[in-house]
Computed example of a mutant assay.
Amino acid sequence: MTSRPFPAAMEATLSEILPALRETRQDLHRHPEIGFKEVRTAAIVAGRLRELGLEVAEGIGGTGVVGTLRAGNGNRAIGFRADMDALAMTEATGLPHASTVPDMMHGCGHDGHTTMLLGAAEVLARSPEFSGTIHFIFQPAEEGLGGAPAMMRDGLFERFPVDAVYGLHNKPNLPEGSFNVTPGAMLAAADIYTVAFGGQGGHGGSGPHLSIDPTLAASQFVMNLQAIVGRNISPFDQGVISVGHIGGGNYNAPNVIPSRVVVRGTTRSFQPQTRDLIERRLNEVARAAADAFGTTLEVVYDRMFPSLHNPADTTARISQALRSRFGGERVNDRVTPGMGAEDFAYMLEQSTGCFFFLGSGDGPALHSDRYDFNDKLIGDGVRYWMTIALEELGE
């Protein structure tokens, strides 16, 4: 398939600004900020958008920024979203632009996402070959803290109504420069559970029979959790239940039966009914273990992110637009769904649109201390946004 060229003025602008975009990305990487504390990052974003002549709103959902670009007389409005936050982890890349902030790093590429959307804002502001409105949404706190719902509670879509909203995330170990999506469920719902068993501590050597041992209840609970996936969820569906933390007693007192044991973990699912089933059965399995050994029980089940579902019609249309611009070999619209989670799912619950992965080639995985965003993706990331603008709002 022969690819359809972008307007010459847009390509000229992109070529001109690419070196500066790489510098911006590496500057953001040097100065990571975790969720709801993206003060410096948000100020850079807001300042740059103002320089481009966009209408700018700050402090949405904490540190979120929205820049609005209008052109022509079209009455459609679309949203482009990028996340800004880093992770609380120590970088081990040894790169010249490595993090200068202790125990923080851009280990997921949000520095690249922010940069690519800033680049798109500049190209589209300087070459507005579309008719309508684009809201550039720079979101805080994607990494588990709920930045998307925070912006929405702050009136994001009431203040900046959209007909569709779009997202993009880089993905290591997919072909470099490829665009990857699937209609329907693409990323999982992610929840966190905390289960506490309470008993009566005692001497583990001379008087275990005088105690009510919560370690037995916790152990049975952990072993029986996997039966939920194996025996309650259809083999044609998917679910994950994992234990990430078990805490009880004192390391320096191995002969003491603790009075309390806490088990924490995560669950993943794609379908709402499966999510409901996992929560219900987890509570039942915990209650059965507590009753069996006479312990008290506390269960907290926090629903964190919904499953990300791409609407079939919009996904097909944007996939075809990307094929037209980049060639069919660069677009995979049947990528395997993943058990990762993404709070852009909240936005797709309120609007149509879709969410793509941009393949970054071989390299360390997301959230690795050796990960670094692939700067070769910046140009095509900007072109992704250009493609959607031209598709949705016309040339």
Rank of each mutant, 00 (worst) to 15 (best):
S368Y: 08
A43V: 04
H97N: 09
N180M: 05
G207Y: 05
A227W: 14
L95V: 11
V285R: 00
E349G: 14
A43P: 10
S211D: 07
Q320F: 02
R334F: 07
V285E: 07
G359A: 14
G340F: 06
R153K: 13
L117S: 09
G184K: 13
F326I: 01
P272T: 14
N374A: 10
M386I: 08
P96A: 12
L348I: 09
G379D: 11
Q271P: 15
G155C: 10
M186Y: 08
C354L: 07
D85A: 06
M347E: 04
G167A: 07
H31D: 09
I212K: 13
A148F: 13
M386F: 09
Y371P: 04
L54Y: 05
Y346I: 12
E395C: 11
P364T: 11
P32E: 00
E58G: 09
C108E: 00
L187I: 09
S351V: 12
L377Q: 06
L348N: 02
T68A: 02
I246T: 08
V285M: 02
G379N: 08
L187N: 04
G328E: 07
T315W: 04
N232M: 11
G62N: 00
P175N: 09
A217L: 03
R317M: 10
G381Y: 01
P32C: 12
M152E: 04
L95C: 12
T387A: 05
E91P: 15
L52P: 15
I241E: 01
L216D: 00
V300F: 08
A43H: 07
A9G: 13
H209G: 14
N250W: 12
Y251W: 15
T336W: 03
Q320I: 00
T296S: 13
G146R: 06
N180R: 02
E392G: 10
S15N: 14
L210D: 13
P172A: 06
L187T: 14
L393F: 00
G59D: 06
T133W: 04
S15C: 07
I378H: 03
N255W: 05
N232I: 03
A321D: 00
R76E: 04
V101W: 05
G363C: 14
A389Y: 01
